[in-house]
Write a protein that binds this DNA or RNA. Structure first.
Lengths: 145, 145
DNA sequence: TGAAAACCCTGGAGCGACTCCAGAGTCAAG
DNA sequence: CTTGACTCTGGAGTCGCTCCAGGGTTTTCA
């Protein structure tokens, strides 16, 4: 299987596949006589696994750990549960701040009375300026993380 | 006002202030005799504005546009409304995918029957492997953007 | 008075996870 | 036999910072 086939089979960009190899997430495949990478089905599975983890927004370092656990099936791997829980916590925190964000933006948009072509009194800009003046609004707080 | 005062007044890191200047978001301040930056209150306002926009997760390029609109108060600036709407759309899309994400992670966590120290049959890993096999699950889809 | 600490400057590197590019080689179709 | 699609490598660019080295300046304290 050449790299483009693997890319199409998994929906992963060719460059990204090479990048994962360089990062040690995907083992180096065999090479054909011409030097082209020659992937086996194990690579396909592993890449799909990586991609699934990425879809869960796990950082590559965490995925490396999970792959390590997979590669040592007999041994204990107490990290796995913790990694997933940490990921959940991260996502929850992010969700919270994004909900606040959406609210702010909607308020902002509502404040734009009439942004006509005169444009001389766009409420949004006024609002942003005013908000910037209020020294400790909720938005500012959430940025600090 | 020296850079550290400005940093403390706005809660923005000193390096970040210099970075904004380099990026053309914050105008170059006057210099004291010793070469130190000497900020006026206009800088404080502008920096607070930038920070507020960043809190709304607008990219710097968009903020540059908004600042441009602020700097040309008489002229029309039809971009402003659109920028805010686009930002709302971005946040909404992100919220949606993050909610799906949370659900996935919770399912994953629930699937971990007992990750004891034997570790030989961690449900999470099994689940991830299985999920990676199902070629087109919801998670995979949301990654593509 | 002198030394140490705290501040300031510039330019450049590093982060994460890609993405894109240049320049060169390989291969199949028309 | 040429065109186009594919592959290779190594390196640079992206975003929004953050940190560092190596220097100068100012403040503070003994």
């Amino acid at each position: 299987m050449r790299i483009k086939e693997l890319a199409e089979a998994t929906g992963v960009d060719v460059d990204t596949i090479r990048y994962y190899e360089k990062q040690g997430l995907l083992p180096e495949p065999a090479r054909q006589d011409n030097g082209y990478r020659d992937y086996a089905s194990t690579h396909l599975e592993r890449l799909a696994f990586i991609r699934h983890c990425r879809a869960l927004e796990m950082p590559l370092a965490d995925i490396r750990r999970l792959l390590g656990a997979l590669d040592a099936p007999g041994e204990p791997h107490p990290d796995v549960d913790r990694l997933v829980q940490e990921q959940i916590d991260k996502v929850r925190a992010r969700l919270k701040s994004m909900r606040a964000l959406e609210k702010q933006l909607l308020l902002l948009k509502a404040s734009c009375g009439r942004c006509d072509d005169e444009g001389s009194d766009c409420g949004i800009l006024k609002e942003l300026v005013a908000a910037a003046h209020g020294e400790a609004c909720a938005c500012h707080a959430h940025l600090a993380h």
